[in-house]
């Protein structure tokens, strides 16, 4: 079966794709490549000059490390660093917008993230380094949240009497009756919860998946566009394959 990909929708920064003609191992290899091998920026080395807040230095360091940094993958390669500074005096909440970066292209993805609260006269002075690294080291370097599921398929067997119990039981209201059969009206919205099957008194409902069809969800975290993340993941995968083939040749030869 030929590979086909269709974009279903994009809500906020969550994109959904329908992929047909792919296998779980291949799709999962791409997913894992995104998670493990595609690099992005995250704060890693910090120097705390002043921290009068109630938060311990370690606690604060952890919060800073978790901040999603908008990554420019074209000018930053794995291992590259960029300096950031956070300086603030209380009273008030310290937000991610208070972090200043030496490179104007690099910033924290969300400006409204509360970092710590300061009382009057309390001071904060921190110097940070964001490093380009891959998710294999730590999940803070994961460029996107990515998951997939097989495309659901719900259908009724012969002994269905169209009682509509299953339709009322569906929490997502995605079922309907068409030509005396229960069918899945919106297969992309079905969450495979099984409430329809449980509601059926005649055991007439079957829940199945369409083989080789998958729903892919991608939610970029580090401000990189979806196609860039996927392309980089596939390039990494190809690179790994080439290395493997080369090593295999050596084994054969020796």
């Amino acid at each position: 079966m030929a590979l086909r990909i269709k974009k279903i929708d994009e809500k906020g920064n969550v994109s959904r794709y329908l992929i047909k003609g792919i296998t779980t191992p291949l799709l999962n290899a791409i997913r894992r490549s995104v998670i493990q091998h595609v690099p992005c920026l995250a704060i890693d080395k910090i120097t705390i000059y002043e921290n009068d807040s109630v938060m311990f230095d370690e606690f604060l360091g952890h919060r800073l490390a978790m901040l999603p940094v908008k990554t420019d993958a074209k000018s930053y390669k794995k291992g590259d660093r960029v300096k950031m500074v956070l300086q603030k005096e209380g009273p008030g909440m310290v937000y991610s917008k208070d972090i200043k970066c030496t490179d104007p292209k690099i910033e924290i993805v969300d400006k409204k993230i509360p970092i710590v609260k300061l009382k009057k006269d309390q001071k904060l002075k921190i110097e940070m380094q964001a490093i380009m690294q891959s998710g294999k080291e730590h999940s803070k370097w994961q460029p996107a949240i990515i998951s997939y599921q097989e495309l659901p398929n719900v259908y009724s067997e012969k002994n269905c009497n169209q009682c509509r119990e299953c339709i009322d039981a569906c929490p997502k209201s995605v079922l309907e009756i068409k030509a005396k059969k229960v069918v899945l009206k919106e297969p992309f919205e079905c969450i495979l919860c099984g409430a329809c099957r449980d509601a059926c008194e005649r055991d007439a409902l079957a829940i199945d998946v369409e083989k080789g069809s998958f729903l892919l969800y991608i939610e970029p975290v580090a401000g990189m566009p979806v196609n860039e993340v996927i392309n980089m993941a596939i390039a990494e995968l190809q690179d790994k394959n080439k290395q493997f083939a080369k090593l295999l040749q050596k084994v054969k030869g020796g």
């Binding site: 109630v54 938060m55 919060r63 978790m66 901040l67 999603p68 991610s96 993805v109 969300d110 400006k111 409204k112 993230i113 509360p114 710590v116 609260k117 999940s139 994961q142 949240i145 939610e219 975290v221």
Partner: peptide, 20 residues
Amino acid sequence: MLIPIRCFSCGKQLAGLYEQ
């Protein structure tokens, strides 16, 4: 004590939505 920056399970950044 203060809203965690990310979701513990999936890693989605949530702290920016907390005040809203």
